[in-house]
Design a protein around this nucleic acid. Structure first.
Lengths: 211, 211, 211, 211
DNA sequence: CTCTAAACGAGACGGTACGTCCAGTCTTCGG
DNA sequence: CCGAAGACTGGACGTACCGTCTCGTTTAGAG
């Protein structure tokens, strides 16, 4: 009844380094896809990856850091800044990019991590870097190009205005629980972002703040 | 070996009903104040309140519901809609009200619950009602009055524009980890909210255009 | 894949107190009988007893204390002092009693505990009481009766002489690894114990020290 | 995030063969002296010796064998058979030799190994040779000389009588936890060993019967 | 005022996961 | 190309909570 210590099931050679890392990341994502972030357990990840808990803890101090890396691992780095020729097109493209990114395992991971960071302030800083800044930074670039094109006036570009679009998008994702449809994105762009930068929206010409 | 069951130390009478409820709420808030939401445990709350875990579970299904009620219990209901006579004043007053509310135990509780809801979608709906809607609803009333005063045009009032201010405020609280200073609130109002509703900002009242 | 938390297998009411204790002791003994003391694990005992590890650790601080109690639980208290009418008969009866006691699960447990105590001096004191003293104490009584009968002289009774028989028995059990046959016991009695107390052995009359 | 694999700290040349062996033995003894046998770990020994666990396992199959060798390594081979001219003197000298040997790291190691052997019967045989037999064998030689000297009668020499002294000594060391004083040794010799071999004890040499 | 039923405190109970430690094996790479 | 270094799997450790339960005790309210 005592399991023979030599009774080993593996035949494939022992994985190390990067190969093991990948297997672990895969397991993390599978667990998140199956049961969600909250149900994710170091123990189950280890079992699923056919790794030992020690190997997990040797690499990451805890669940959050592990999920963080597993998410980064699939983060597409093709998040090039859109350039459609118009501010409206660029902002919409950026928002669609983000929405697409958040749909699926990566989104589940990010929501879970955000939840974690809200409860555990010490881990928050690290996690915060994860998805943050990027969107505002991209907004800055997009708007900068619009200014260069003469589409909007440089004096209108302030930090808060750049944040408005991202903030509304996150607001929707975090608080409504509803899917983010393209209608919503267009409303954000046409009702808020474009007016803030003095650009007349294409869709609702009557809604210009310059009454 | 079994400890004597009658070895009781208490002399204060056993609490029930509302008195016990209050003691439990108090314990919840003390735990949050001391150790934060993440470290809050049914076990510790019970011990601190000198109550039994059974008494907790008889009243609430779990940690989230308990904290929710404990937070409601101290929620000031003086959150009357500000009426300062100007859109700028009203929005600023509202935001300051919110910021004050989030400062302290109540804020910690709300952040924790939000984190919970991000990881546990089934409890999310209930929690979402907690602090949500109110701010946008109040914004609607405030802006409605501004329209009635002729301060801004009714056609500019859309759902997204009403959400913009609240969204930026939450964005700041949730993602920056920085304290929300009054400067920040003024920037939000002057750079984003007022422009969206077609009101000319007057950041410095003493340099008001009504000179 | 997540096991439903309510999926409980038990139908019999939850055991507590003595009933649970008994089940745990049973499991301990079964484990020892199957795999020996060294392979005994808190985890396996808990599983076998359908108890939780917490229930084990609530009662005993560790493996040694648990096994100790489980052994005591089956220790026959019929270890009445033999009284056969002769010193030789009494000593032999006592030794056979001990040997019988050590044969089986109880012996395995005692050897394991002794091993434990040799490596862990702090737990040694407690364990040492377990099987010790009794044998020497019984020897004292037996020899006392022999003195009273006039079988031997009181001046010969010293502490070391009383210990000699027990020491040889333990020496055999601990160091030889061989089974303790009745031949061995008779040799101990006739070659050592009886001569030390000046009693002429019945079996080997030629081996008297009173040459 | 993966630690650099080539981060090596060593500067001193790699030890091999006997040099490494000595370093390992030294580490074993240092660990035993510091923390005792129970706390000794292959891992800690390897670290302390600046060796790898593989190097340990290549040389010894496990902890017991390693400690065994480390103990042998410091075992004084001056354990020459005492020859004082009298049985009493010889037996006392032998016992003092043993007691001195057991005092310190070597004793701790031997106790630990004995404990090991009690729990792990398969390793017991090997360990049993360690300290055993020698003492009885020496006793045989000592008593043989006493017979040759005419100090005692050959017919009294039996295996059990030869074992009695060693058994009492071990009994004391293993079960009492008390230090073995010279008083105790003299009692063993005068009350048990000498009578068994028909030699009149002479506890106080100055009141010797050869007056 | 007495009696009963509910609420209560206390905390044991079966579970699950935690993060750590060590045994023994296997891979890699330096000397 | 041997062997030192150490990463790897596996599994037990002892702890902390979870949510349920049993047990007496206390309290409030009905009779």
């Amino acid at each position: 009844m005592t399991p023979a210590p030599g009774a080993d099931h593996r035949k494939q050679p022992r994985r190390r380094g990067a190969a093991l890392n990948s297997a672990i990341f895969e397991a993390v994502r599978a667990e998140i896809a199956e049961s969600g972030y909250a149900a994710l357990t170091m123990e189950r990840v280890a079992e699923r990856a056919r790794a030992s808990k020690a190997s997990l803890y040797r690499r990451w101090p805890g669940r959050a850091a592990l999920v963080l890396d597993a998410a980064y691992d699939v983060m597409p780095n093709d998040s090039s800044v859109p350039d459609t020729g118009s501010l409206r097109g660029d902002v919409l493209a950026l928002m669609r990019q983000i929405v697409r990114l958040l749909d699926g395992v990566l989104g589940e991971a990010m929501l879970g991590l955000l939840g974690e960071s809200l409860q555990n302030p010490e881990a928050a800083a690290q996690i915060r870097e994860f998805g943050r800044g990027n969107m505002v930074r991209t907004m800055r670039e997009i708007v900068g190009r619009a200014v260069a094109r003469g589409e909007c006036d440089a004096s209108l570009v302030t930090e808060r205005r750049l944040e408005a679009g991202p903030a509304l998008l996150r607001h929707r994702v975090l608080f409504s629980g509803l899917p983010v449809g393209d209608d919503y994105l267009q409303e954000v762009v046409d009702d808020v972002v474009l007016p803030l930068f003095g650009v007349r929206p294409a869709r609702r010409p009557e809604t210009s703040p310059e009454g």
